[in-house]
Design a protein around this nucleic acid. Structure first.
Length: 467
RNA sequence: GGCCCGUUCGUCUAUCGGUUAGGACACCAGGUUUUCAACCUGGGAAGAGGGGUUCGACUCCCCUACGGGCUGCCA
């Protein structure tokens, strides 16, 4: 028995940056498709000509690319398919599943206002629903779905379970606007059907829409896709995610220096779980990802956990990939690129840094001692530890470093013997040494620094502070 | 207002009627240590409230509270 092919899609509207919640929706669709040998499609829902912009479309592309969410085939523009949408609207009309409604927006607003005042249902019931076409005026009109008024529509949701919505709650939605363009409700269904989408994985806010869309599928005699409505992401206070919580656009996260692998891991784990698995690669995630593992309740964004995961991914990344992504980070953050010489030095000194850094700016900060050129700028605490005693120790130590074999054991032997000879703990020696090498009191291990910058540079830096 | 969805440690979550309610992040304490990290050990920390059903409920049902969504010729 063969499995039916899986086709998922991400369908953002290009009205701003790629929202963090949208990115997670895209990620879930991508994981599901990749894990099932299926296709992941991208459709830009640009039927709202007022609010859609090409810049926003570009931002969506950049965000998806940063996260490594590659889509199959050409990007589809929903607006470009408006003729097809209209065709379906007229097909529904011909089937008697839809009708022309000549009510003006002013009339509808008046109806709603009156209904609200009388505490009646504000669902608009068009007087044209059952009107004889022969009596239709020659006037602008919309095409409305002739939705069933009794009974119920059931959404068999893979995340939420069986959701029953009474048809009396649903109105005759507009499918084709008076200017001939389709509404979202019609366009999604037509496109998803035409694109062969089998699984609709999207935000919870569409759950009610699913009932409406289900009606269109039924009216057209099309197969209804598998629904999976995923919970939204909340801000750190449990309230809806908003600008107050800082970063909303995924590009901001890139600019803050979070590695994409960590971001993917974090976002995957937010609202989905696979036993106790916390740290995993995209391949593992795709292999494990399933609709059953998606939680029902909204999750709060937690920067601490994101950072922790990012740190683990940074440590696990190979040097070339890390350096490559670091360069991209610098561009995204609008920071100056590293020179070839700096990159060479950084590559050599990456090993003691990788498992300490959580983000790219963090890594760069810790790599400061590699990139600085002599004389090394000193911060206040470093200067303080380079007092007369400290400098005396260092100038006595320096000659001994000229002859040592430059590896961890060689250096360690000299330093520990030196400390012992002077009757001091190793810490008393390491502190001024660290200051001289790094210009600060927080740095990687002095051994590691000496190995990374090399014998010549080490001695030069020590001589600088002795002077 | 009507309808729909949700509610386990501070946070992300496991549990799919029977567990001392598990893990991770964060936090606290101790250890290791040349600083900061990392690392190791230990610790505190949860089923929104109230009713049922059941021999037994975090788990099933109902009510309430709280949070969210929909109720557009936006998506």
């Amino acid at each position: 028995m063969s499995h039916p092919p899986v086709v998922t899609r991400f369908a953002p509207s290009p009205t701003g940056y790629l929202h963090i919640g949208g990115a997670r929706t895209a990620l879930f669709n991508w994981l599901f498709a990749r894990g099932h040998n299926g296709k992941f499609l991208l459709r830009i829902e640009d039927t709202d000509r007022e609010r859609s912009t090409p810049e926003a479309t570009e931002a969506i592309f950049r965000g998806l690319k940063w996260l490594g969410l590659d889509w199959d085939g050409e990007t589809m523009s929903q607006f470009a398919r408006k003729d097809r949408h209209a065709e379906v609207a007229y097909a529904m009309l011909a089937r008697g599943q839809a009708y022309k409604c000549f009510s003006t927006q002013t009339e509808i607003e008046a109806f709603r206002a009156a209904a609200e005042a009388e505490k009646r249902s504000t669902l608009f019931q068009s007087p044209w629903r059952d009107a004889d076409p022969a009596t239709h005026p020659d006037a602008p009109h919309v095409i409305r779905m002739k939705a069933p008024r009794t009974g119920e529509t059931v959404i068999d949701d893979r995340v939420l379970g069986r959701v029953v919505i009474s048809n009396a709650q649903l109105d005759d939605m507009v499918c084709l606007r008076s200017d001939g363009t389709p509404t979202y409700m019609l366009a999604v269904v037509v496109d998803d059907h035409d694109m062969g989408v089998t699984h609709v994985i999207r935000g919870n806010e569409h759950l009610n829409n699913a009932a409406r869309q289900s009606m269109i599928y039924t009216a057209m005699g099309w197969d209804v896709p598998v629904w999976a409505h995923i919970p939204l992401i909340n801000g750190t206070d449990g309230k809806k995610l908003s600008k107050r919580h800082g970063a909303l656009g995924v590009e901001e996260y890139q600019a803050m220096g979070y590695p994409a692998a960590g971001m993917r891991n974090y976002l995957t784990r937010l609202g989905w779980s696979h036993g106790d698995a916390e740290f995993f690669t995209s391949d593992q995630a795709a292999e494990w990802f399933d609709l059953a593992g998606i939680g029902k309740s909204p999750a709060q964004f937690d920067f601490k956990k994101l950072e922790n995961l990012c740190g683990q991914h940074l440590a696990a990344m190979d040097d070339a990939a890390l350096l490559h992504e670091l360069a991209e980070y610098l561009v995204a953050a609008g920071r100056p690129a590293l020179s070839d010489a700096q990159i060479t030095m950084l590559r050599a000194g990456l090993w003691p840094l990788k498992d300490r850094a959580k983000t790219f700016p963090d890594l760069l900060e810790k790599a400061q001692y590699i990139m600085s050129s002599r004389p090394i700028p000193m911060d206040e605490a470093a200067l303080k530890s380079l007092d007369a005693t400290g400098r005396a120790l260092l100038s006595e130590l320096t000659p001994q470093l000229q002859t040592v074999s430059w590896d961890k054991t060689g250096i360690e032997a000299v330093l520990t013997a030196f400390a012992a000879d002077h009757g001091i703990g190793f810490g008393k020696l390491a502190t001024p040494l660290r200051a001289a090498l790094a210009g600060r009191t927080v740095s990687p291990s002095v051994y590691d620094m000496m190995l990374v910058i090399g014998q010549v540079e080490t001695i030069a830096r020590l001589k600088d502070v002795a002077a």
